[in-house]
Amino acid sequence: MHISDGVLPISITVGSYAASAALAAWSVRRTRSEELPKVAVVTAAFFVASLIHVPFGPTSVHLLIPGLAGALLGPSAFLAIGLGLLLQSILFQFGGLTALGANALMMGVPALACGVFFQKLKGRSRRRQSLVGGLAGALGTALAALILALLLASGGEDFFGVAKIALAAHIPVILIEGAVSAFTVAFLVRVKPELLAPAFVQGRPRQPELNAPPPEPPDSPAHG
């Protein structure tokens, strides 16, 4: 799901560049320096995830993990996704450089929405966290497909037609992504629960899980 060069009208291209630059600047300001390694790892995962092709029937789909990135990074997700998309378009020729702003909006806004969604609803229990993580993963891809339809509609396409096609084409991705996100979140809840607490409110103390004691040995530091 990448928009290519020359599909969108110029005004939308410039506007989406401006919007994604503003969002990226906000995202950089909200990224704390202690979290840079985590952001780097999630960025690398996002960058590589689009190469994992899952054969599905006659075609094959590839992962796009905006929901998972949002759930893990919170506000920094937009930075991660923007950088990942920039490198993808330079190195892999996925999408075009002129459509980078639109692509960043298409993947980054769902990531932020999924971050908020995950933080609001994740609750405390492990099962609920992995369930909400899976939902966030599925929601991220579905939202990305909707934004794709919205952007293409600005180029003169019929919004509902494109939305229907984009959603139908991504139903397998949505399902696979939900499963992958649920699995990843369940794994992280067990081995490193503090990874799942990105601070949307700056300065909020990060609470370790109360009823789910971390299985690490007690001499390891609480915050990695």
Binding site: L36, A40, T43, L87, L91
Partner: peptide, 30 residues
Amino acid sequence: SRPGLQEVFAGIGYIMGLFGAAAFAASRRR
């Protein structure tokens, strides 16, 4: 046109390098 291993590792290297530089700058500032 399919990206090969070289591009993948180049991208990962870019990401790690950029974030490493950012972390270095942040630590110096602190």
